[in-house]
Amino acid sequence: MVEPGSRPELRTAIEPGQWVLHPDHQEWGLGQVQSAVGPRITVNFEHRGKVLINAALVDLQIQY
C-alpha cells in the first residue's frame, strides 16, 4: 500500500545487459544497458558512448 503523499518508485522493464535504441537518436546505434536505477538508465551506445537517460522522458526501444 502506498502512503498518501509518498511517491511510488518508478519501475521500468529495462534491465542491465539488454540492448536498446534511442528513438530520437538512431544514429547512436545499438546501446547496451549498463545500469537501471529508478528512471535513471545508463546506456553504452555504439557510436555515442555512455549516456545517462531519464526513462520518465525517453521511451527506449528494447531490441530482442
Rank of each mutant, 00 (worst) to 15 (best):
Q63Y: 05
M1W: 04
W28T: 04
E3F: 06
M1N: 05
L21I: 09
H22R: 07
R7Y: 02
V51M: 07
H22Q: 09
G17E: 13
P23H: 07
R7E: 14
L21P: 00
P39K: 12
V58K: 03
P39F: 08
W19H: 09
W28G: 03
P8V: 02
R11I: 13
Q61D: 07
M1T: 09
S6R: 14
V51S: 08
P4N: 10
D24K: 11
Q18D: 08
A56C: 09
T12D: 12
L30N: 06
W28N: 00
W28R: 00
A55C: 05
Q18L: 10
E27H: 09
W28A: 01
I41G: 03
F45Q: 00
G38P: 11
P16A: 11
L52D: 10
F45H: 02
G49R: 00
S6Q: 14
L57R: 15
V58Y: 01
Y64Q: 13
H47Y: 10
Q34T: 12
R48Y: 03
A55D: 12
Q26P: 04
F45G: 02
L52Q: 10
P39T: 03
E46A: 13
N44D: 13
V2N: 02
E9K: 14
G29N: 02
N44L: 15
V33Y: 12
V51H: 02
A56W: 01
H25E: 10
V43A: 03
Q18E: 15
P8C: 05
L60G: 00
Y64F: 14
R11K: 15
G29H: 02
D59L: 04
L30Y: 01
Q63L: 13
V58C: 13
Q18R: 06
Q34Y: 03
Q18I: 05
V43N: 07
G31H: 04
V33C: 14
P23E: 01
G17W: 14
W19Q: 07
V58E: 08
L52C: 02
G38K: 08
M1F: 09
Q34F: 07
D24G: 03
G38R: 04
W28E: 00
V43T: 06
G38H: 06
R40Y: 09
L10E: 05
S6M: 14
G5H: 09
P4V: 10
V20C: 10
A36K: 03
L52P: 00
H22G: 04
T12C: 05
V51P: 00
R40A: 13
D59K: 13
R7T: 14
E27Q: 07
I53W: 02
Q61Y: 01
S35I: 10
N44M: 12
G49H: 05
R7K: 14
V33M: 11
N54F: 00
H47W: 08
P23K: 01
Q63S: 10
V33S: 10
G5A: 14
L60S: 02
I41H: 05
L60N: 04
Q61M: 05
H25W: 05
E27C: 02
N54P: 01
L52S: 09
I62G: 07
L30I: 06
E3P: 02
G31T: 07
G31P: 11
V51F: 06
P8F: 09
M1D: 07
W19L: 11
